Computed example of a mutant assay.
Amino acid sequence: MSLTDLTRAVITAANAPGLKHVRQLGSPLDSVRWERLCFDPSGTRLLAKDAWSSRLRWWNLDTATDVASGSVELKMEPIEALFHGSNHIVTAGPPVAEAAVTWRPRLMAFSTTDGSLWREETLSAPATGLAMSRDGMLLAVLERGEALLWDVAAWKWIRDLQGVEWHVQVKACAFSQDSRFAAAIVNYYNHDQAALYLWNLKASSRPWVHPLGFQFAASVAFHPTLPLLVARGVHEVVVMDVNERRVLRRFNDYSHYVTNLDFSPDGELMVSSAGGRGFALYHFDTGELLLSHSNGDDLETGDAVFSPDGRFIAWAKGDGTVGLWSVGPAP
């Protein structure tokens, strides 16, 4: 079954209760914890990055096989791995033993064809957050309170972004759909409150910093069609107007312990990992919980994300496999 099979309906609030498990990628693995997931822009490839091990895997979803089409074993910190187009994967990795400065980490890009190293660049400090824009611009937030923009296609530095504090733990980063804004959600090591960093990339390089009113940050995402931004705590949701820099609404979900957030392409729905044991689907405008699913065991699960066409949700199951969910054939 191809992911791009157009006989399947787009997931909506009306048909969400009919969501079904339609495909399982990969084989069960040992010692998998909180896998991060990412679709390529075409929706034909899916990437899984184990947050605590050296394992990167990706699948070509236009093929019939559910075996990974490529993999890389590389010692990495718990950081994102992202697609640049369909042909390359970008992440942060450790220094090489032969490096002149052996402690410095690297920005790395791999080929999705054979997993070979395509390009690399030494960083001044470990990366704690990465995000990729639709036009291939990369945001990297570094451990020393630095942030930089990187042109992946040209493989060159664009400019530094000012304003990141030293003592923060970056939980997630994101770009707006038009690449005008970039955001990071952070926890302070010496504070009781999470905060949002928002950069206007077309104007000043200093961010708007906004305390979020909850203690533990989880995820951040821009609305795909409106100038809105959602910052999530493990139970809290804050919706902000990007242009006016103000909070529009808040709501809570104490039934689930959330670790990631993703929008459907039209922005009607939000999907999140839930309780470390499943995923949950919400209506964006109302915050209504439309569907929740659990794998029914004690294995810690990972990300839940929408496919670019909105017809599938991919969910990283706790046994190392990745499930694809849809609402079945369109009428």
Rank of each mutant, 00 (worst) to 15 (best):
T4E: 11
D5E: 10
D5C: 00
L6C: 02
T7C: 10
R8A: 03
A13M: 12
A14M: 14
A16T: 03
P17H: 07
G26D: 00
D30P: 08
D30Y: 12
S31H: 15
S31K: 13
R33Q: 14
R33D: 02
R33M: 05
E35I: 10
E35D: 13
F39H: 05
D40I: 01
T44A: 06
R45L: 02
R57N: 06
W59N: 09
D62V: 11
D62T: 10
D62S: 15
G70L: 01
E77R: 08
A81L: 06
G85F: 05
G93V: 10
E98Q: 15
A99V: 00
A109S: 15
F110R: 00
S116R: 00
W118M: 07
E120K: 15
A125R: 13
G129Q: 09
G129T: 09
D135G: 08
L138R: 07
L139K: 07
V141R: 04
W150R: 10
I158Q: 08
D160H: 08
Q162R: 11
G163W: 03
V164Y: 02
V164M: 13
V164D: 04
H167L: 10
V168Q: 13
V168N: 07
Q169I: 15
V170G: 04
S179V: 02
I185Y: 10
Q193D: 15
Q193N: 09
A194L: 06
L196Y: 08
W199E: 01
A203G: 15
H210I: 11
F214S: 01
H223I: 03
H223T: 11
T225R: 15
T225K: 13
G233C: 04
H235R: 14
H235T: 13
E244V: 01
V247S: 12
V247Y: 07
R250K: 03
S255P: 07
H256I: 02
L269C: 02
V271R: 08
A274R: 02
R277E: 12
F279W: 12
F279M: 01
Y282T: 00
H283G: 04
L289M: 15
N295E: 05
D298H: 14
G302F: 01
G302Y: 00
D309T: 14
G310C: 01
K317G: 03
K317E: 06
D319Y: 06
S326F: 04
G328Y: 04
G328C: 03
